[in-house]
């Protein structure tokens, strides 16, 4: 086995690993998620997007202070970005019959682009 072959094998192996991680996260997309952050708030919403630093974007997100089951009051945040560094714990509902399944068209309403017009000058310069 030449060096090059060996290298390619290793990279294939890691590639495989990365691919699996990617797949697992992809499976979790659009599933309900319960994230608590360090100041004690709990956020419940569906996972839409994440990256290496665990920055999460949750759709249809509600904010609870303390335990959500005890709290009658909550704040509707809608689309929320949780920076990875503030996350304390993550729970996910993995049920196969998730109502937020990918193919469900009703889900798309979470992130319609209606009022997402950006003032493009703010994004540059």
């Amino acid at each position: 086995m030449t060096d090059i072959e060996q290298k390619s094998l290793i990279s294939e192996k890691t590639d495989h690993h990365v691919e699996q991680a990617r797949k697992q996260i992809k499976d979790w997309l659009n599933k309900p998620m319960r994230v608590s952050i360090i100041d004690g708030r709990v956020l419940v919403g569906v996972l839409l997007c994440t990256d290496r630093d665990q920055n999460l974007i949750l759709g249809n997100c509600n904010e609870y202070i303390g335990s959500p089951s005890e709290q009658e009051e909550f704040r509707v945040l809608g689309l929320a970005l949780i920076p990875g560094q503030h996350i304390q714990s993550i729970y996910i509902e993995e049920g196969p019959s998730s109502i937020f399944s990918h193919s469900n068209p009703s889900h798309t309403s979470i992130t319609t682009t209606n009022d997402h017009m950006l003032d493009d000058d703010k994004s540059d310069g």
């Binding site: 991680a21 996260i25 992809k26 839409l48 997007c49 990256d51 290496r52």
Partner: peptide, 12 residues
């Protein structure tokens, strides 16, 4: 998440 590349985003 740690397995992801820098700058890579997993999204729907």
């Amino acid at each position: 998440c740690h397995n992801l590349n820098i700058g890579e985003v997993v999204r729907d």
